[in-house]
């Protein structure tokens, strides 16, 4: 089912995009086991769309990679470096906060509910991390931020705060903010689910552009099957904290092997 282990899952590709290798990852909330012995590989530069029923653990996968949730056990490698572990002698030891921060700088995430900073303008939202975390000068960060805003079609909204923007505009600013730190892998958790239907398109267009540029690996959780078919290199069907099946989107969508996948896709289509 999955490709042999000799493929360059880890490390980064020529464009600087980073791969991910998850091995035996477990995560439970109390008695609710959400990720079970999960093995998942993402190639550098690959665009993987994760689908699956509600509560199957899709968000949790992205959150453990973003270090918003700590796995109970297992290892996660990002761009060739262990995320939660550091080399110690022959083995691994739990990573220090400093190590985690260092690996984390390769990862970016865009959230379902945008999570923009409401007390900052669009421009300030985008400039914050480049200036405070990456030590860019304000002028440099401002120029980059304007370029990014222009890229998502919102240069005119630079001085507006999230309260003044529509949902689709907020999400485009949030994407620009995440891009500003040049992540080698970007995680998108249902980034169009909170939007009015007529605003979904403008956000998907921005995602298409990012995919086209190919500078970053993309892991996307979405219910937009048409978009998945068009953009994804691989579709991963997730159920009960494990990969149920995975493959090229056309294969999975048109000829799902597993009954659970057929059931799920049927439910999504009827929707």
């Amino acid at each position: 089912m999955s490709a042999p282990d000799t493929t360059p899952y880890t490390g980064t590709n020529g464009n600087g995009a980073a791969g991910v290798r998850m091995r035996g990852v477990n995560k439970a909330f109390g008695t609710n086991t959400v990720l079970r012995e999960l093995d998942l590989d993402v190639d550098p530069g690959e665009r993987v769309v994760i689908i699956g029923p509600s509560g199957s653990g899709k968000t949790t996968i992205l959150r453990v990679i973003m270090t918003l949730e700590r796995p109970d056990s297992g290892t996660i490698e990002v761009g060739g470096r262990q995320l939660y572990h550091q080399p110690a002698g022959d083995g691994l030891k739990p990573a220090s906060e400093k190590h985690i921060r260092s690996v984390r700088s390769d990862i970016g995430m865009v959230f379902q509910h945008f999570n923009l900073f409401p007390h900052m303008t669009a421009l300030e939202n985008i400039m914050l991390a480049p200036v405070k975390v990456h030590g860019q000068s304000k002028e440099e960060a401002r120029t980059n931020a304007f370029e990014l805003l222009d890229k998502v079609g919102l240069a005119h909204a630079a001085n507006q705060t999230p309260g003044q923007l529509s949902g689709g505009q907020k999400q485009r600013v949030a994407i620009a903010r995440s891009l500003a730190t040049k992540p080698k892998i970007m995680l998108f958790d249902e980034v169009t689910s909170a939007l009015d239907p007529e605003l979904v398109g403008e956000v998907l267009n921005v995602l298409r552009d990012i995919a086209e540029e190919g500078k970053t690996t993309m892991m996307l959780v979405t219910h937009e099957m048409g978009f998945a078919r068009e953009v994804a290199d691989r579709l991963v069907m997730f159920d009960h904290g494990q990969v149920l099946e995975s493959g090229p989107p056309a294969d999975v969508l048109d000829n799902p092997r597993e009954a659970r996948t057929q059931e799920f896709l049927g439910a999504v289509r009827e929707h």
């Binding site: 409401p118 304007f146 005119h156 909204a157 507006q160």
Partner: peptide, 21 residues
């Protein structure tokens, strides 16, 4: 003054934008 920070500013016209964009 704090509230003003949350309420944001005006639309920029093309003239306000930096050369690069």
């Amino acid at each position: 003054r704090l509230e003003k920070r949350f309420s944001g500013g005006e639309h920029l016209t093309p003239l306000d934008l930096p050369e690069a964009t």
